[in-house]
Design a protein around this nucleic acid. Sequence first.
DNA 1: TAGTGGTCTAGACCACAAT
DNA 2: TTGTGGTCTAGACCACTAA
Lengths: 262, 262
Amino acid sequence: MAKTGGRAARSTAAPALGPLDFALDRGSPVPLYHQLAQQLEAAIERGVLAPGNLLGNEVDLSVRLGLSRPTVRQAIQSLVDKGLLVRRRGVGTQVVHSQVRRPLELSSLYDDLEAAGQGPATEVVRNELVPASCDVAAALGVPEGGEVTVLDRLRRTHGRPVALLRNYLPASLPAFDTTRLEATGLYRMLRSAGITLHSARQTVGARAATAQEASRLDEQQGAALLTMQRTAYDDTGSPVEYGTHIYRASLYTFDFQLLVRP
Amino acid sequence: MAKTGGRAARSTAAPALGPLDFALDRGSPVPLYHQLAQQLEAAIERGVLAPGNLLGNEVDLSVRLGLSRPTVRQAIQSLVDKGLLVRRRGVGTQVVHSQVRRPLELSSLYDDLEAAGQGPATEVVRNELVPASCDVAAALGVPEGGEVTVLDRLRRTHGRPVALLRNYLPASLPAFDTTRLEATGLYRMLRSAGITLHSARQTVGARAATAQEASRLDEQQGAALLTMQRTAYDDTGSPVEYGTHIYRASLYTFDFQLLVRP
DNA sequence: TAGTGGTCTAGACCACAAT
DNA sequence: TTGTGGTCTAGACCACTAA
């Protein structure tokens, strides 16, 4: 097939927006649109692409890169979805004005996913099978009184206790090795167990600390605590985890970025 | 290979997934992929599409609907992004297992956007120009001491105070009419002023109520409060609003769904 | 009017999963 | 081996924005 046949003709001495050099590898298993998106994002991050007009129209770009327009669009769209670019019909595609731009995954789900490995960050204080209470049964979709794994962890940063994490998991999952859990983190273990997270539902609130909670968290009784409940689901919609977390409000906040969908 | 070459042969009395009837209007200004997405979503919502295998392959679907495959894919992809569908290569596209499915916009930004109009939900208690303090100036990107609009509102539900909302806005915006603000809501007024929100950054925390806050919110001093700070940006990345909100933890929680991006 | 993104088409080959 | 989604192409016409 001569598909790529006429491509050699695209010589044209360095068009107006020459400074951008993208190296696309057609042999790579990573999709072209993804390669382009990554390199665009890197260019934006490095400030090579200033927050002004740019990315001269999609058609030119596709010709310059030797890609089809839909492919270029797909790359651009992924960055628009990330909030890095804005498209205006009849105007062009612009880099969004710097400011806060780190994508920032959501709240403590991210913590559980990434804040692992480094030192004795979280200590497992309980890891056993118990009968499911009413609310746990409802959240996990198991019969009330059926066995579930309960996991209590104490999380510290800089040596100070920050959070009490209680998680319930279906007993159908393989048992969790405590030491490995402390080194790896809950979500990474779920992942290596072949469970791919799909979505989660969270509720964030606040209340005063009980005497017991206060002593465990090194706070005064009645101190303000941040509370978070979460149910996480896998691809098929089956619940894989129900958690009730408590954070010291004096040391911890949830912060996240959100995009307004058109 | 004659792949679907025998396409005409695929007459087969009412194929397995016959019950779906989609009415696409090519004359409508609403894009075909969007029409299809809406009708698919409606079918899922109504339970016509059970959480199992379905949506027989994209190629057949496109033929049945008289659309090209990319168009069908675009429709499906939008529902995947919403968390309603899951695609598996070599398997097919499935409806995600019911459970929690309402998309649910994020936290109180949604409140501000939608919880408007109905009754005296929020009362404007302050609406004036003041010099920007350090943190306000930083958040809004204006010089310290420059004029900004400060807006204090008291929000009630069922007659009980729920939140104290303080917002700062650039003085460059047109003045906000207090009565209209109470009837319409802040974000709707911004929108009608031609400002399209793009993204926001939020921090959620907790602390004990001061005596003054307690009296305004009908709480005890020291009661747990939920706090939220937010900076919202428009398309161009310019800050359009900085808010410091306080909620009664006994009456209010943030709850939201989040999708795990692959 | 000219230029931009928005939508749509009709194909193609590939990678992966199930059989 | 078969069927699925994943990627990619090379065009086309339209709607909106700006000059």
